[in-house]
């Protein structure tokens, strides 16, 4: 029983950076842009947040600046793809390369430095509830932020007018343009939001989950976030749920190993991706899918 509680509590920690990055990317893709540079933006957030937190002593300021750092990097992508109309797949890959290089340069001298501790976010009273308390109410504040953000993005996309416009841009940018919406501006805003979220996710790893700075420390989490967006069928709540499943698989895997249960680690490690493909197949069979304009460049005169 205790192990189950641990797995469940742990699941949220593993899921948080994934959720943050994936929610951001969901908005980006819903606006019709495919930014494969999530890994690069995350690692930028990780180092910027770390540097600011260490130098200012404030982890909260670190998080804020991490979001700014991720956003700053994403704006390069926004310029290249939205203004200069370069291919999004290639630009996203270049962004990852760029981010990994820049973060490693910035991070020289931060190895072995300990960041200021992040305050634990136990919620009074609720934290003492048996079972649910440790799982839900003894987490750090960023976990709650990730959950809140997921819900907020869901509400934004589903119920707000701006969300409707954003989706319209993603589904058919020509029609949206004809209706007088500023396609490029909306997309740049979405890309910036995605960058900020990815930066936050990266800083969560360097400031809370590990916490330390090491070169290349995101180690592929940004790529998993990309898979997650698909897994969640571009729907924020499902993306959040997917993050819990992905994080949960990791938690279960490690816990079973530690408990001495022989498990096929490699099979389990590839299962999220196989499940994601399965989800894609099911979705396409029932004819719902990716935003129709995903990855296609837009120019007003064309």
């Amino acid at each position: 029983m205790e192990m189950l509680i641990n797995i469940a509590a742990f699941m949220f920690v593993a899921a948080t950076p994934l959720t943050l990055a994936a929610i951001g990317e969901t908005v980006v893709e819903r606006a019709g842009v495919l930014n494969l540079g999530v890994e690069g933006m995350m690692i930028m957030g990780a180092i910027v947040g770390f540097m600011v937190a260490v130098n200012s002593g404030s982890p909260v300021l670190g998080l804020v600046m991490a979001a700014a750092g991720g956003m700053g990097l994403s704006l390069i992508f926004a310029f290249v793809t939205q203004v200069a109309l370069a291919n999004q797949v290639a630009s996203g890959l270049a962004l990852t390369l760029f981010g990994l290089g820049l973060s490693a340069l910035l991070g020289q001298g931060y190895q072995g430095v300990k960041p200021p501790a992040f305050p634990q976010g136990d919620i009074p009273l609720l934290a003492d509830i048996p079972v649910l308390g440790p799982i839900l109410f003894q987490q750090d504040p960023v976990v709650y932020l990730a959950i809140a953000l997921t819900v907020a993005v869901f509400v934004f996309l589903r119920f707000s007018r701006a969300g409707l416009v954003l989706r319209a841009v993603g589904e058919n940018h020509d029609a949206a343009h004809a209706l007088g919406y500023k396609v490029v501006r909306i997309r740049i805003a979405a890309i910036a939001f995605g960058g900020a979220c990815a930066g936050l996710g990266g800083a969560y790893i360097s400031l809370i989950r590990v916490p330390q700075w090491t070169e290349g420390m995101t180690a592929g989490i940004g790529w998993i976030a990309l898979a997650l967006v698909v897994f969640g069928a571009w729907r924020p709540l499902l993306v959040g749920l997917g993050a819990c499943i992905f994080g949960g698989i990791e938690a279960v895997q490690l816990n079973l190993q530690a408990a001495g249960v022989a498990i096929p680690v490699s099979l389990l490690a590839m299962s999220p991706y196989l499940i994601t493909i399965l989800v894609l197949v099911i979705m396409s069979a029932v004819r719902t899918g990716a935003p129709a304009s995903l990855g296609r460049p837009f120019h007003a005169s064309s």
């Binding site: 310029f79 291919n87 270049a94 760029f98 290089g101």
Partner: peptide, 16 residues
Amino acid sequence: AAIQLFQGMMLFFLLA
């Protein structure tokens, strides 16, 4: 890291 950064910049310039 400086080389990676350099490559990343070159790609952006070429694409842009």
